[in-house]
Design a protein around this nucleic acid. Structure first.
Length: 998
RNA sequence: GGGCCCGUGGCGGAACGGCAGACGCAGCGGACUUAAAAUCCGCGGGAGGGUCAAACCUCCAUGUGGGUUCGAAUCCCACCGGGCCCACCA
């Protein structure tokens, strides 16, 4: 018996000899469960055929139901894992009985840092430790009796799997985003356009379509022969190559990265929390580095717009919306005041993005990010030292800003820092000459990396202006008596020339119209979302299918040569360096090869060409971006997923309503939103995984590889399972094993005998309040465990684990068992005649369970089952049928069927004891007789002035007149309204009567 | 600093704007037992009245204070408390 379940466990001890042989004990539950699990495994009960395979029935509606696959850690499952898994299992088992063909797979998100860090310590290959962890997870999951199709099991570390991860990446590498048609297209289309002369290249490296309206920056709507563009054939081969490489959806770029020396890798913005690494909490520094990027920004508008079409939690849609961060505003050009010589190609104007163009009259200075090109230019060609420009000071500031960890920057966030660059621009509205500063409160990645500072209307600018004595001009009149600093509310414009008197909205419109007319600016939508940094310096990830020649040009590995397999290393210790060095560079024999060996197409490079492999690897998110597609066809060697299989499982008719997919039909070739029908996982993935996967899916959709625009039609987050913990007066937590309960609800710390209070906290090893699922199942069985976790509360809620409470679910199963099975003989207990009351209750229960499963209210569904069992048990008591049964065979069968999604092992056992030799997994769900599910008469509360006075009993279908009459005729109601004037009578048929008197 | 969510018995939680506390745990009482465990049955928000005991009756109760409504745990506003997320995004 384990230490985690209290001594009060009903079943843990060896049963004494007087326990009936067929009593439902933990031991019997264990026998029943392992027997049925073996049965399902041997018969392949939950193996799901694909189109073209025997047993596939395309006439059934599809239901694709998926869990977020786990990272198999060495520690094994914790109680949080089975929460979501049990919920999906219940829904899947229910849907099968409802006649759906159900796809319910499981796999492993197996690349990741812990295995690599373990390898650094021990030298054991991560593949080995990961395989072991997977075996443990699989064994543990099977013990829960989840109805996964294990024949579809995948792991992201399988070369057969990551071959296709690399393949999809190559598809993105060989694609570009066509802004005209708003979709990704093969890059060969772009080359054909350029070669055919339909498009040109602007001096800013943008594509200009001939005959279309030019989208050239500052071109002012020019058509035909745009100035400053070049014909494709006028470009050198090198420039052509560079241009094409810059257009790719997966592209290489020198970017400022988040470098984490402790982890020995760079991190995506999403992986940096408060300037520290999400994993480990180590400091993160900014470094310029040449890295693989994903052009997710090209999809910002579609990722935003399509959120509306998804049946997702509101909170998650909002998180993604905020992350994408759309804001409408304008770009405004501020020409540089040029005093000295200006060489060709030098910056001569500063363009800023602002959401408040109406405040441009109040722009008294400018700020650029320390990484802004203007800073480089100032350092290279120092301006005249007018106004105290100090080149050495600028250099010092910029260096410091770059090398400072983000944590430090944030700690200092309130204290504004910056230096004057010694240059000026002209405010296009006021024609005033205003100074340009650099400061780290302006971020390089957002907008243009430069701002116009309006201290009167922006608190950050106000703080900066105060710190450096810069002028402040209010451009919106604050309300009477306003005593704050910056005023950000609405009000009439002031000090703003022709805008004066206009409120913010009109002022914005007027100024942008003016700017556009004058060619000084333009309307602009800006997104917070930045391109996705996709390189990591780790070992345990997917290698890129890329090599470099001696000149540093990159070449893709041909699709036919995939996968590029990860080499083994002798030593996993990261290279000693202050700068990011990929771990794979240690595999010198693998890194240095030839184009032919690496599998580069001979059309791109002669096979003997010496090449160096890309040594960065893909981040942990890569494998999870498309695993739901691989499940559809996990063994396909020709394609990541056959088109038939993809359509069979992803394409489905869905309408917007939550429960509206009940009668969905699979119609080949018809275009619906579709995707996974139910995806359950933690809300910690609300932005990262779920945004990345949507992005990959849209690329595949654009390239014609998948048939739906979104991967996950319906998403649901299960809540966290927490635990009780104990808190001292100073709010520190005491490990659970150092606390004793001295009386009901009163706790104290054993060592000090001081009182502690019970609080709810995350389970943690340090607090000694971690529950091991294996122990619990060993005591009470998987069915009880499943019921307990689903009964704890609403699926989405955070709930504390309480082992003590589990006995309730065990007792329920025991009562259900005793209702059906003779504890002495093991024979079914059958009634000859059904009780009408019990029959009615059964219909009600089936209806309630059905309704609740559809809305994922599994706790109340179980409550309904308990009520039925209690009703039937009482009926048995009343009849005195201790030896015989109270339920007929038919009723017991229906009980087994509705119990099956929740406690599948017991349900199968009952089903087989009732004489069936086939599994109930695909048996039809019991039909509800609506007439029987309703009572003949109902009790109706009668209120007087909204206060409950009495109850009356009326026929179920009673109309308002009948109800009012019955209420008025009731003696007690008469007494309550005696001597008063009835003003109004409100009757809600079937619900209540309210008599308003005075 | 901004945003979102949540406050209901001793505990977990029920409750399309319509009987607050379903169901479970813990507790109490009883049955069975030499006894205990297990099991089964019953009782259960608070205060007061009523009764041998019940039934029953009255008032107060969903963090606090307002509001909307015939009627509010539910909708709106403010505050208090707890949690989560984002955070110099111009």
């Amino acid at each position: 018996m384990s230490s985690t379940t209290a001594a009060s466990s009903p079943t843990g001890a060896t049963p004494p000899s007087d326990v009936p042989p067929f009593r439902y004990t933990g031991a019997l539950a264990g026998q029943i469960e392992t027997r049925w699990q073996a049965h399902w495994d041997e018969r392949g009960t939950f193996i799901t055929p694909n189109p073209g395979e025997p047993g596939f029935d395309g006439s059934k509606p599809k239901f694709y139901c998926m869990d977020m696959f786990p990272y198999p850690s060495g520690a094994g499952l914790h109680v949080g894992h089975p929460e979501g898994y049990t919920a999906t299992d219940i829904v899947c088992r229910y849907k099968r009985m409802k006649g759906y063909r159900v796809l319910h797979p499981m796999g492993w998100d197996a690349f990741g840092l812990p295995a690599e860090q373990y390898a650094i310590q021990t030298g054991v290959h991560p593949a080995l430790t990961t395989r072991r962890a997977i075996d443990t997870f699989r064994r543990q999951l099977k013990r829960f009796g989840f109805s996964y199709d294990w024949s579809r099991e995948i792991a992201t570390i399988d070369p057969d799997y990551y071959k296709w991860t690399q393949w999809i990446w190559l598809r993105a590498y060989n694609a570009w985003y066509d802004a005209e048609s708003r979709r990704a297209r093969p890059i060969s289309d772009l080359i054909a356009q350029l070669e055919g002369g339909d498009a040109r290249v602007s001096m800013f490296g943008e594509i200009v379509h001939i005959g279309e309206r030019a989208n050239l920056l500052g071109a002012g709507g020019m058509a035909f022969e745009p100035v400053g563009t070049q014909r494709w054939h006028e470009l050198s081969a090198k420039d052509q190559r560079r241009f094409i490489d810059e257009q790719r959806l997966a592209y290489l770029a020198e970017v400022t990265v988040n470098w984490c020396p402790k982890l020995g890798t760079v991190l995506a913005n999403e992986e940096v929390i408060d300037g520290k690494s999400e994993r480990g909490g180590f400091p993160v520094y900014r470094r310029p580095l040449r890295q693989w990027m994903f052009r997710i920004t090209a999809y910002a508008d579609r990722l935003l717009a399509d959120l509306e079409t998804l049946d997702w939690p509101e909170s998650t849609r909002k998180l993604q919306t905020d992350w994408i961060g759309r804001s409408e505003g304008a770009e405004i050009d501020f020409p540089l005041v040029i005093d000295g010589a200006q060489a060709a190609g030098m910056i001569d104007e500063l363009t800023v993005f602002t959401t408040r163009p109406d405040t441009v009259f109040g722009a008294t200075y400018m700020v650029v990010a320390p990484e802004h090109p203007l800073v480089e230019q100032v350092l290279a060609v120092p301006p005249p030292a007018e106004g105290g420009a100090d080149v050495a000071g600028i250099r010092r500031y910029v260096e410091a800003a770059r090398n400072r960890a983000d944590v430090e920057r944030m700690a200092e966030a309130k204290q504004k820092t910056g230096v004057f660059l010694g240059v000026y621009v002209t405010n296009p509205a006021t024609r005033a000459k205003i100074p340009v500063w650099t400061a780290d409160y302006v971020l390089t990645g957002y907008g243009t990396g430069a701002i116009m500072a309006v201290p009167g209307q922006d608190q950050r600018d106000w703080d900066f202006a105060k710190a450096f004595g810069l002028p402040i001009i209010r451009t919106v009149r604050p309300p009477e008596g306003f005593e704050g600093e910056t005023f950000t509310g609405d009000g009439p414009a002031m000090n703003s020339g022709f805008l004066d008197g206009l409120h913010v909205a009109e002022a914005k419109k007027k100024i942008v119209d003016w700017l556009e007319k004058e060619g000084l600016g333009r309307r602009r939508v800006n997104y917070k979302l930045r391109d996705w940094l996709f390189s990591r310096q780790r070992y345990w990830g997917e290698p890129f299918p890329i090599v470099y020649d001696a000149d540093g040009n990159h070449y893709p590995v041909a699709e036919s040569a995939l996968p590029v397999t990860l080499p083994a290393l002798e030593d996993y210790t990261p290279p000693e360096s202050d700068d990011p060095v990929p771990l794979l560079s240690k595999a010198t024999g693998w890194v240095d090869t030839t184009a032919g060996e690496a599998g580069v197409s001979p059309e791109l490079l002669p096979p003997e060409t010496p090449v160096r492999r890309e040594t960065n690897t893909m981040p942990g998110w890569a494998g999870s971006c498309w695993y739901y597609l691989r499940y559809c066809d996990p063994k396909n060697a020709e394609r990541f997923c056959s088109r038939d299989a993809e359509r069979a499982w992803m394409l489905g008719k869905r309408s917007a309503g939550r429960d509206a997919d009940q009668h969905a039909q699979f119609v080949p070739g018809v275009h619906h939103l579709g995707g996974v029908d139910l995806y359950i996982g933690g809300s910690e993935h609300a932005v990262l995984h779920l945004l990345y996967a949507r992005f990959w899916h849209k690329i595949l959709f654009d390239l014609g590889e998948v048939s739906t625009p979104e991967p996950f039609g319906k998403l649901f987050h299960q809540g966290m399972i927490t635990s009780y913990a104990y808190q001292r007066g100073d709010k520190t937590l005491v490990p659970t094993d150092q606390v004793e309960e001295i009386e009901e609800g009163v706790f104290r710390e054993k060592a000090t005998r001081t009182a502690v209070t019970q609080v709810v906290a995350k389970m943690s090893k340090a607090l000694k309040n971690v529950v091991n699922p294996d122990d619990v199942i060993g005591d009470v069985g998987a069915d009880t465990f499943r019921l307990y976790e689903m009964y704890m509360g609403p699926l989405e809620a955070t709930k504390p684990w309480s082992t003590r409470d589990m006995v309730g679910m065990f007792r329920f199963l025991q009562r259900a068992w005793r209702l059906a099975v003779d504890e002495q003989t093991g024979e079914p207990r059958l009634a000859r005649e059904p009780s009408l009351a019990v029959e009615r209750q059964l219909h009600k229960t089936v209806a309630k369970v059905e309704h609740d499963i559809e809305r994922l209210a599994l706790n109340t569904a179980i409550a309904a089952l308990i009520e039925f069992v209690n009703t039937a048990t009482k009926e048995a008591e009343a009849r005195g049928t201790h030896g015989g049964g109270v339920l007929t065979k038919d009723q017991l069968e229906r009980l087994a069927l509705v119990l099956a999604p929740f406690a599948p092992h017991m349900a199968e056992e009952l089903w087989s004891r009732l004489g069936h030799d086939q599994t109930l997994a695909y048996h039809a769900w019991p039909v509800v007789d609506a007439a029987l599910a309703k009572d003949d008469t109902v009790e109706i509360p009668v209120q007087v002035n909204g206060k409950l006075r009495h109850k009356i009993t009326v026929p179920a279908g009673a109309d308002a007149r009948l109800m009012e009459g019955a209420a008025m005729a009731d003696e007690r109601v008469k007494a309550a309204i005696k001597g008063k004037t009835v003003r109004k009578v409100i009757v809600v048929p079937g619900r209540l009567v309210n008599i308003v008197v005075s």
